[in-house]
Amino acid sequence: MAKNKELNPEQIEELIRILKNRFEKNMNRHQSIEWSSIQEKLNPEYAAKKLWSLLEMERTGGEPDVVGYDEKTGEYIFVDCSAESPLDRRSVCYDREALESRKKFKPENNALDMAADMGIKILSEEQYRALQQVGNFDTKTSSWIITPPDIRNLGGALFCDRRYNTVFVYHNGADSYYAARGFRGVLKV
């Protein structure tokens, strides 16, 4: 992961070009939203940290795109829209407690810490289901989602995928990790 959380002008220009192209190719995800309004929010003068987070989402294979607008906060909602769980965020357990509890074969990282380091949040079940309304995601992989404390306190964690044209929510030990399971993030800008 990049240590320097500041982007140079070339990185910003390239990121905005990528985001704009993806936005224009996937209008079904944001039919009533205009790119010009989003580009205003991506001004480096006041969105430098958000731009860095979007670049991290892109760098790790998330293919972030706008999927909505939060009328309460006036922010656009970017979510990882890669067809499968982002490649460079797979093979991680759920959280630090789960990582530290493993005695053997520990994964390199955990989903909650990775998301926090990137400046994003992991999708909730509601957000995951909303994402599935604009496309078919995780048909071969799965993604950790925010787990309610009562489940996590008992050692479990939740993940989702899409199979048989249906979104499924499953449980697993929070310390489990698989090559086909990662996490999707959300960032409001």
Rank of each mutant, 00 (worst) to 15 (best):
A116I: 10
E126I: 04
V66T: 10
F105D: 14
Q127P: 01
K106H: 02
G62D: 11
E71D: 13
S101G: 11
N43F: 02
Q133Y: 00
K50M: 05
D65T: 14
L42H: 02
L112M: 15
E75I: 06
A48W: 01
D65P: 05
A48F: 08
V66H: 09
W35R: 09
D70T: 08
N136S: 14
E125D: 08
L54M: 07
F105M: 05
K104H: 07
T73E: 11
I122Q: 00
Y94M: 07
A83S: 12
L123N: 07
R90E: 06
L55I: 03
A115Y: 02
G68C: 12
F105T: 05
M118A: 15
E125T: 05
E84H: 10
P64A: 13
I33T: 12
D80H: 09
K106N: 06
S37I: 00
Q39A: 08
Y76I: 13
P86F: 10
L123R: 06
R96L: 02
A47E: 01
N136I: 10
R59P: 03
S124W: 06
G135K: 04
E63K: 15
G119Q: 08
D65G: 15
E58P: 03
I122R: 00
C93P: 04
K72D: 15
S37N: 15
A48M: 09
N110Y: 01
Y76L: 07
S91V: 04
A83T: 14
Y76V: 10
P44E: 02
Y94W: 12
Q132H: 13
W52F: 15
S53I: 10
V92K: 05
C93I: 02
V134H: 05
D113P: 05
D70H: 11
I77N: 07
K72P: 04
L87W: 07
N43M: 01
M114F: 04
V66G: 07
I33W: 09
Q39I: 04
F105V: 04
L55S: 13
L51T: 04
E56C: 12
R89F: 05
I122A: 03
G61K: 10
S37R: 13
T60V: 14
E45H: 03
D88F: 15
S32C: 08
S101Y: 00
Q133N: 07
N43S: 03
E45R: 03
N136F: 09
N110E: 03
M118I: 04
A111H: 08
W35M: 11
A116W: 07
P107A: 13
